Amino acid sequence: MDKGLTISQAAEYVGVTVKTVRHYHRLGLVDEPARDSSGYRRYESAELLRLVQVRTLAGAGVPLAEIVPMLDAGTEQFAAALADVERRLSGRIAALSARRDTLNRLADGDRALLPDRACAILDRMVEAGFHRDYVAGQREALVLTRALEPEGFDGFLTQLELRLDDSDYVDLIKRGWEAEFWELDDPRIPELASAMADHYLAHPALLGSPASLQAWADAPAQYRVISSHRHNQAPVAARLTALTEAKLRAAGIPVPGR
């Protein structure tokens, strides 16, 4: 009777498929045993041991291309190689965890693209009675700001928090939203723009810190993209913003040109 196991028996004992065993052979991870008198390859203890070692290392995340050098290395080199694999696996786990967190945040809308602090500001806008379309526009502006001017994003959030603490400013912004339904040449638009500019000048913190203002002045292209977002859909808002900025600029505030 022929000794050893057939390839299907060896695969079953080791816990892999026949296809996997043959793949290991093709890669040179496990030598193919000699054929018996009937022409079948018979797997004995040496081949089975090697299959178990390869399967265990592969299952632990060791790249197949690195398994042979590891098995052929001495004890110290083997331990060092395992430590290196562990470091790489830890990095992959961290990356996968971050992806999982992003997927979880996707289920919660804004939280996929914005940090909790920004989402809290949007929640405050809703609670303050801002129209949902206004809040949606602010959400998109926050996403753009975070992407285009990341270094100034936290400062911008502080600026929004201060504005929401100012009831007079909140009333002005709500009037600005109501102005969307006015005619483009309505005389109330320049009056409202003047009131907004005067309020900013009386409360300069609402415009941001000097460093923040200078950062926007140094990034006019980004500022134009963010500040003009949705203006093609809201011509009154575009005019109101332009008039307000013009008065601020005339007062020496470094607002980038449009």
Rank of each mutant, 00 (worst) to 15 (best):
R117F: 02
C119I: 05
C119F: 02
I121S: 12
I121L: 15
M125N: 00
V126P: 02
V126M: 13
V126D: 14
V126I: 14
V126K: 14
A128K: 15
G129C: 11
G129W: 12
G129H: 12
F130C: 11
F130M: 12
F130R: 09
H131F: 04
H131L: 07
R132F: 14
D133L: 15
D133G: 13
D133K: 13
V135C: 12
V135T: 15
A136I: 02
G137R: 15
G137C: 13
E140C: 06
A141C: 11
L142P: 11
L142V: 08
V143S: 06
L144I: 13
T145I: 05
T145P: 03
A147R: 14
A147T: 15
L148P: 03
L148I: 07
E149M: 14
P150Q: 05
P150W: 09
P150M: 08
E151D: 15
E151Y: 10
E151R: 15
E151W: 10
G152H: 05
F153C: 09
F153A: 05
F153T: 05
F153Q: 07
D154H: 07
G155W: 10
G155M: 06
F156P: 00
L157F: 11
L160C: 10
E161V: 01
E161D: 12
L162G: 00
L162Q: 03
L164F: 06
L164M: 12
D165I: 00
D165W: 00
D166I: 00
D166G: 01
S167Q: 13
V170R: 10
D171L: 08
L172G: 03
L172F: 07
L172I: 05
L172T: 02
K174A: 06
K174R: 13
K174Y: 02
R175W: 03
W177F: 11
W177C: 03
E178C: 02
E178G: 00
A179V: 10
E180K: 07
E180I: 01
F181V: 04
F181R: 15
F181N: 13
W182P: 01
W182G: 00
L184S: 05
D186F: 09
P187D: 08
R188T: 10
R188W: 03
R188Q: 12
R188K: 12
I189D: 06
I189P: 04
I189V: 14
I189R: 05
E191Q: 12
L192F: 08
L192P: 07
S194L: 09
S194C: 03
M196R: 12
A197S: 11
D198P: 03
L201H: 09
L201K: 09
L201I: 07
A202G: 15
A202W: 04
P204E: 08
P204V: 05
A205V: 05
L206P: 03
L207W: 01
P210F: 04
A211W: 05
W216F: 09
W216D: 10
W216Y: 07
